[in-house]
Each structure stands twice: as C-alpha cells, then as structure tokens.
C-alpha cells in the first residue's frame, strides 16, 4: 500500500523538533516504500544535516517559504501543534483526505486518552485527528525508530566512554560527569554536530544516557540502557509535572525501593526540582548498575508489547 504524506514542522529552538520529525518521516518511508514522504519546514538545512551521511531514505525536504508549486498529498501531518498557513490550507482541503496533528510527548496521565481524537481547526474541512505521544498502555504510544539498533564497541572509537550526555543544562549534575568519561560532554552544541545516525550509535554505546527533550528520550526508552531525562523547561515550572509523571510511570519497574528513591533524587535534581548534591545517590546507583539495567530492560520489554506511535498513526492512515 502506498500513501503519499506531507509532514509540516516548524523548528522552535533546537534539534529535537527536526530530529523527531525526521524519525517520523523515516518510519513512514519504511512502511510505504514507493510513496513520497515530504517534509515542509522553516529550517531545511537542519534536516539535511541530521540525516545519515550514507544510505539516507528518500525523504524530500522542502522550505515552507517556497510554496508556489505545492500540491497536497493524501495525508498531511502537522507536528507539534503546527498548522500550515492559508497558502497550503486550500490545497489540503481540495486534495487531501486526512490531517493528523501530532503533539509534543508527555508522560502525564491526561494525555493517555488523547489518541485519534478529532482536531478542531476552523480552516480545515477534511477529516482531522490528533495524537499525543504517551507512555501509558492504550495511549498514542511512543515513536520507535532508530537508525542504528546497537552502537559500536566503545573501545574502538570512544575510549573510557561511559556516559552520553546531551542536556539543556549540565550544571545540576556537573560533578557526576567527569569530562574525560563523556564523549560529547559540552562539545555537542559547541564544536561538533552529530547526524542522527551518529547520535543513535553513541546512545546505544553508552553505559548511561543523560538525555533531554523528546527525540533522544524516545530513543532511550527503547534502548534498555539506563538514562536520566531532563525535560524541556516550561514557564512556571510546568515541566515538573512531566518529570513527576515519568517518575510515577517508571516506579513499578523498580524492585528495590532504595534504588528508586536514589534514581528519583538524581532525576529531580537534574531537572532543577531539587538542588541536592546527588553524588552519593549516583555512586549507590552505579555500584548496583546491574539492578538499574534490569529496570530499563523491563521497561523496554513493556514498550515492545505496546503499539508504537507510528503503528497508531498508520492504522488510521491505512483505513482511509
């Protein structure tokens, strides 16, 4: 079955929006190999930079500013609450069958039931659906797409490489991340840019991942490798609720209450909820690394039993 799909994405302030959108596009391309998968964005260069250097899937990336010859595909996606403007809406109403809105991820319980709900937009006159990616069973699910399923042996390219750190703010955990042990420690945003493929390889090669936002978080959930998540900072500390919701979600995977408490201390400190010295907590965790690894393996097994975000999207696309 072939479905041509347009995906609209406006990049707000970092690589995550583009990275996540690229994974959505690539997962569609895997499913609909002979279809056109088109990304329309205000930041084309970033998409080209993020793509794997070799063997890139045939995903077309267009600038939203050059809309003069636009013709809408059968299905149109708006990522992260983005709606195309009037230059596109008329074409979409005439030529498309379905508009899908995909929101930002949140582990909060309220998002569990927002799966394929109709989406109100005064300009759109075609069928609309809305999904909020979420970790809970029967929810919209989590995106599952990596360019690499495992990393390179760490001693080949990254000697003494222990933690992969890619954070908004390193301050809260600076003491835990000695520079020589972190491959892309503070280098990522200053000197070196990684393609998604390279980033995935690093993530799968790590003992710990210190990750942020949405794109790397989605990847880390499926990795079975322990990670610490730093949520995107929102006004009035609204992101705290997301962190607490994830802490609640992950709790049943822990068998050792002490280990859970220590893990939560580190995560809450990483997110600025606490201002603690968590060195002891991290040493405790590291000493019992195998136990923590089991937690994340169990969580991976849980996710393997759930429908992924792209499965939920495709179910609605295929029954058009």
């Amino acid at each position: 079955m072939n479905k041509n799909i347009d995906i609209f994405c406006s990049v707000i302030d970092n690589f995550g929006d583009a990275g996540y959108t690229l994974r959505v596009a690539a997962s569609f391309k895997n499913q609909y190999r002979n279809s056109l998968i088109n990304i329309y964005t205000d930041c084309t260069e970033l998409f080209f930079k993020l793509m794997p250097k070799e063997g890139s899937p045939q995903i077309n990336v267009f600038s939203m500013d050059s809309s003069s010859d636009y013709h809408a595909s059968e299905v149109v996606l708006g990522m992260f609450q983005f709606f195309p403007d009037e230059r596109y809406i008329d074409f979409i109403n005439r030529e498309s069958k379905l508009f899908i809105g995909v929101d930002y991820f949140t582990p909060e319980l309220w998002a569990k039931d927002i799966k394929a709900l109709p989406l109100m937009h005064q300009g759109l006159r075609i069928k609309t659906l809305f999904f909020v990616p979420n970790v809970h069973a029967e929810s919209s699910g989590i995106l599952r797409f990596s360019w690499k399923s495992q990393g390179l042996p760490t001693d080949v390219l990254y000697p003494r490489y222990i933690s992969n750190a890619y954070l908004y703010d390193y301050g809260p955990v600076e003491k835990l991340l000695p520079q020589e042990s972190v491959f892309n420690w503070k280098i990522n945003t200053q000197n070196r840019f990684f393609t998604q493929e390279e980033f995935d390889e690093i993530l799968y090669s790590s003992k710990y991942n210190w990750i942020r936002g949405e794109d790397s978080f989605s990847l880390a959930l499926w990795s079975g490798i322990p990670f610490f998540w730093q949520a995107y900072k929102q006004k009035e500390t609204r992101h705290f609720k997301k962190v607490w919701a994830f802490n609640e979600f992950i709790k049943p995977f822990f068998e050792d209450a002490q280990m859970y408490k220590r893990y939560v201390n580190v995560v809450n400190t990483l997110n600025g909820i606490y201002n603690n010295d968590v060195t002891d907590d991290f040493l405790y965790i590291d000493k019992k690394y195998g136990q923590l690894k089991d937690v994340f393996e169990k969580m991976k097994e849980y996710f393997l039993k759930q429908k992924t975000l792209q499965q939920n999207l495709m179910e609605n696309i295929e029954y058009l």
Binding site: Q81, D103, A111, K235
Partner: peptide, 14 residues
C-alpha cells in the same frame, strides 16, 4: 473542558 500544557509553551483544550 481540560486545559493541557503540552511541550514547549503551547496549550491544547480537550
């Protein structure tokens, strides 16, 4: 009517 703060600083109503 449920007011939801999702990612970034955009809200949706369910």
């Amino acid at each position: 009517a449920k007011y939801n703060w999702s990612g970034r600083n955009e809200a949706t109503m369910t």
